[in-house]
Design a protein around this nucleic acid. Structure first.
Lengths: 214, 214
DNA sequence: ACCTGATTCAAACAAGTGTTTCAATCATAC
DNA sequence: GTATGATTGAAACACTTGTTTGAATCAGGT
């Protein structure tokens, strides 16, 4: 019933996730993965079908956990009506760095993996990721809309992409110990950006003519 | 003197840049590159030495152009003292989408390439990129510091990373025709984030205890 | 004990990779 | 024209890749 040693399947998942994050999907080879996981080379194709399918399994495991954690914190933030903008942003940002039981290292690894998926624009993985992300993003965009009832919903969705970019790249890059502080900074930064009033057409025009002069 | 047809070297650079951006460094093969560029397979190794060296050459060409364009616009913004924050941010953001003579398509392609380089944390390319980026980033951080004399320089550098993340990921993802509008939005968003006052310790404490309750 | 299906193992496979080689061709200066 | 160095061309090289195969081993039920 309770097996002490981790199953072959899980050892492959953990090792492959680490190596994919560190080196990238095409650089990490099945021979390297299976050797470091101390399993047979054929085990990957037996348990997952292919290298691609292994990658999909890795992503599904983490993305589900991340989405669930974000949703839970979002629900908590929405108990106040209208919700506090900072609480909504916290619900989005904080789970990204501590959603795994194993602590920060795993979370950061997955952010690196996520960044690679973003870079691989027209792969199955990219499509799958955006698909699983889509409804979470919509819920957060709606929640921000409730926190800022005067804002244009379309514009909010676009600005949410700014936050995703800042979060993903910064978390994938930064030193481990700083992530918690940086996450707080990002929430403050993003809240101010979202709250900023949009310039009038007249002000826009003034800026463009200024640029033309230079 | 003036050759009508593009040189072998340049055809390789252009084609490889496109394929590296679309598919990634390891997926795009030399056979595919040389075939689409209509040059011999051995030409890459003859003109550049290796596939890696070809990638470095591609990066150098664009990054130099991007840095130069940014510096020029930054100098223009600094003619006013203290500079306008929005002008400094414009100098950083706008060249990213229109720094090549060929229009937006090339610029976006390079943003995709840049995103891949960010994802490849511990490669030579990543190191080289950050190295070439470093002094430009420092100048922009200083300029923002002049525009916002009350801000903490260390914090500004960190927030500049947020902007880089938002810019790179958004530009690499978004539809071509929207880039100019999005760039304007990003400048407004980032300016507000940078101007936002930092919360007092007491306010921070209040937020943390709030989270603990949930 | 025996059967059955799931799992592991070593070995091989077919295909594709970046790179090298060396002869053929080109441009240019004498 | 001819010699000289730079460039191109077709072919081969050495190696690695993901995947498949079929026998060996294991676990659980009857």
């Amino acid at each position: 019933m309770f097996q002490l040693s981790v199953s072959t399947r899980d050892r492959i998942l953990d090792t492959a996730e680490r190596l994919f994050a560190e080196q990238g999907f095409h650089v990490a080879t099945l021979r390297q993965i299976t050797q470091e996981a101390a399993v047979n080379l054929a085990a990957v194709n037996y348990h997952f079908g292919s290298k691609q399918a292994l990658m999909r399994a890795i992503f599904k495991r983490r993305l589900d956990a991340l989405n669930t954690a974000r949703m839970e914190r979002l629900d908590a933030a929405l108990r106040i009506d209208p919700p506090e903008l900072e609480d909504v942003l916290d619900a989005f940002v904080q789970p990204a760095l501590a959603f795994t039981r194993g602590g920060d290292a795993e979370g950061q690894r997955f952010m690196q993996l996520l960044l690679r998926a973003f870079a691989d624009r027209d792969t199955d993985l990219h499509q799958a990721m955006r698909l699983e992300y889509a409804h979470v993003m919509r819920r957060f965009a709606d929640a921000i809309g409730h926190a800022l009832p005067d804002a244009d919903p379309e514009r909010l969705r676009q600005q949410l992409d700014f936050i995703v970019g800042a979060l993903t790249l910064t978390m994938a890059e930064s030193a481990l110990k700083d992530t918690r502080i940086i996450a707080g900074e990002l929430v403050r930064f993003a809240a101010a950006g979202l709250r900023a009033p949009i310039p009038t057409d007249a002000e826009q025009e003034a800026r463009f003519s200024l640029e033309a002069r230079s």
